[in-house]
């Protein structure tokens, strides 16, 4: 069972790695976007699925990292990835620490409200103060460079190289999180989600665990936001907005909470569906109303697949066990 999943994982990884050799540039970029959103969705799943913390303000980290990159980049030249990425992640960690000290004292619907409120505050900062460049945002004329001793290690301007760069990061994030969740820290988190009161009685400082995962989650969302800003070549306040927070939450729920691959799958299906449903060539004037079809799809999943798309395989297994 265990080796079967790692073989499956390896095959998926291989297929993704080979895709740029056959796919057109548009599709290679689209899949890169999917993978970036998969990092974003997995980061939120750490909160929603593994810690029972439903955040409606996760875009704050996504957007913050993007804006940090945009502000650090020289006007027409490339920023250094070595400095801008750590700084973007550090900003997200600091924001998570500051807000976490407050939001993690709330729970349930109040947690949703307070995370949303903090994200809206950040939206205001970048929308309405000189820090952000208003509703038009800021352009990035060049992608950050990965330099070592005067030579560029990766030509990230090349859409394929960028794709592989992102693929490597998704794989690394997935594997590291898998390990982390299977280690003491992850077990404790799942215990806290299941019964926080008992965890405290057993001697766990549950607040510190929650703060830890909140910061990690924020930093990974920041990584996704940094990559997204890099890919699109601009940032604007939309990436901080509650629409973005809502979309990533839908991805996690769609894919199945509490399974990392589910969150990634949710991102995949969500972005592709959005792309297909809003395709004018295929759906003509109806394409404008793609959100309607998306809504119906989400409702259908919620009704028929309560454990999300990732639950499909699990449910089949369960049926085989009980009937076979």
């Amino acid at each position: 069972m265990k080796s079967k999943t790692s073989v499956l994982l390896l095959i998926v990884l291989l297929l993704f790695a080979l895709f740029p050799f056959v796919g057109e540039k548009f599709y290679v970029q689209l899949v890169a976007k999917v993978m970036i959103m998969a990092i974003f969705a997995m980061s939120l799943d750490l909160l929603v699925g593994y810690s029972g913390l439903v955040s409606l303000g996760h875009a704050a980290f996504f957007g913050l990292a993007g804006y940090v990159l945009a502000r650090l980049a020289p006007q027409y030249e490339a920023a250094s990835l070595w400095t801008s990425l750590p700084l973007a992640l550090a900003a997200c960690a600091a924001f998570a620490l500051l807000t976490g000290l407050l939001v993690l004292r709330t729970s349930g619907v109040y947690f949703i409200m307070v995370t949303l409120a903090f994200a809206q505050m950040l939206f205001f900062v970048f929308h309405d103060t000189p820090l952000g460049g208003g509703s038009d945002g800021i352009y990035l004329y060049a992608k950050p460079e990965l330099m070592l001793g005067g030579t560029s290690l990766l030509n990230l301007e090349d859409h394929r190289v960028f794709y592989w760069f992102v693929l490597g990061l998704v794989a690394a994030v997935y594997l590291l999180l898998q390990r982390l969740l299977d280690a003491n820290f992850g077990r404790a988190l799942i215990g806290i989600k299941s019964n926080e009161h008992r965890m405290r009685a057993l001697g766990y400082d549950t607040f510190r665990y929650k703060l830890g995962i909140y910061m990690l989650s924020g930093m990974l969302a920041g990584l996704a936001g940094y990559l997204a800003a890099m890919q699109y070549g601009f940032v604007n306040p939309d990436i901080l907005g509650w629409h973005t927070s809502g979309s990533v939450l839908v991805m996690v729920i769609l894919g199945g909470m509490g399974t990392l691959h589910g969150a990634a799958l949710g991102a995949f299906v969500f972005i592709l569906l959005q792309e297909v449903l809003s395709n004018q060539a295929w759906f003509g004037p109806v394409a404008k109303h793609w959100q309607l079809a998306m809504g119906l799809f989400i409702i259908a999943v919620a009704l028929f697949l309560p454990r999300g798309l990732a639950g499909l395989s699990g449910q089949r297994k369960l049926r085989e066990e009980t009937h076979g």
Binding site: R187, G191, M199
Partner: peptide, 30 residues
Amino acid sequence: NIFLAFSVFENCRLAAQSRRQRAWRIFRKA
């Protein structure tokens, strides 16, 4: 007041784990 979804052993393992908090072993299987 137990963890209903976990195995009996995992319930006790979590209890025992609370006495051993080593931050530098974050990637070692629990």
